[in-house]
Design a protein around this nucleic acid. Structure first.
Lengths: 127, 127
DNA sequence: CCATATACATACTTTTTGGTAAGTACTTGT
DNA sequence: ACAAGTACTTACCAAAAAGTATGTATATGG
């Protein structure tokens, strides 16, 4: 999927960082371009693949499943496929995923002070 | 320094993300490979260029100043150069930089639950 | 007058991440 | 027979981030 060179300096530095530094650890899990948005939508409840796709228009299908898969292997979300045609696949946050809430809120507070932009909060999760 | 193509899809996606999503906003500021570590050391007090370099052995000088400059333009740290030879340059966190503390602590708590690794806390800032 | 110390700068390459475009399987509706 | 809907997959290419290696200025100590 994404060919990584385990032996590279970059990989070993990254590994060290995520082992020693909690911040790097977290960023490593939620740091993909679209991951925060995916998590945001799932915080509002389980979502089908297509619902996520429509909720995040600029994302490509490749990036969407790629991130979904990574989030799944990191155990932040679960994938549930119903054996029907056309397929129905529902993604939900795990307990770990939901536990990110305080982190996200702390970030939200800081960003509110520092940034002059008004973030989008479709579901009113932060109001 | 790092040639960016303002017109690229990646850049416009990134811009949108940092405008609309507080999490992306924060990650954009502290998401460099070594930035969390640099911030960690500066949380313990102002540090000279060389002190940071020694405190973070695997970092290269290129990455160190690159990140320091980015953190400076993002107003998370300040640079103070004394006009002497050999040069003395001291970096310190700004008020914004120090205000990251709650974010870092929230991340620390989450990582403590999720990760089985024991993070390094040289200065005991989290104990 | 040569090495040392400090705080960088610069050219280049590798590695990783993100984006584009096109295709697949399977079934229901027309 | 064929288009449409769903949830993907794959090959390829562009862009960004990180790393390697080397060079710079200035003054002081030996």
């Amino acid at each position: 999927m994404a060919k990584i060179k385990e032996s590279s300096t970059q990989q070993s530095n990254k590994r060290q960082a995520t082992l020693e530094c909690p911040v790097s650890y977290v960023i490593n899990k939620i740091g993909g371009r679209w991951k925060p948005l995916i998590i945001y939508h799932l915080l509002a409840g389980p979502r089908r693949y297509n619902e996520l796709k429509k909720a995040i228009p600029p994302i490509t299908e490749k990036m969407l499943i790629q991130h979904l898969k990574e989030l799944e292997t990191d155990k932040l979300i679960t994938r549930e496929a119903k054996q029907v045609v056309p397929p129905v696949v529902v993604y939900s946050l795990t307990v770990s995923g939901k536990a990110l809430m305080p982190v996200i809120q702390a970030m939200g507070k800081w960003a509110a002070l520092e940034s002059n932009a008004t973030p989008v909060d479709t579901y009113g999760l932060f109001s």
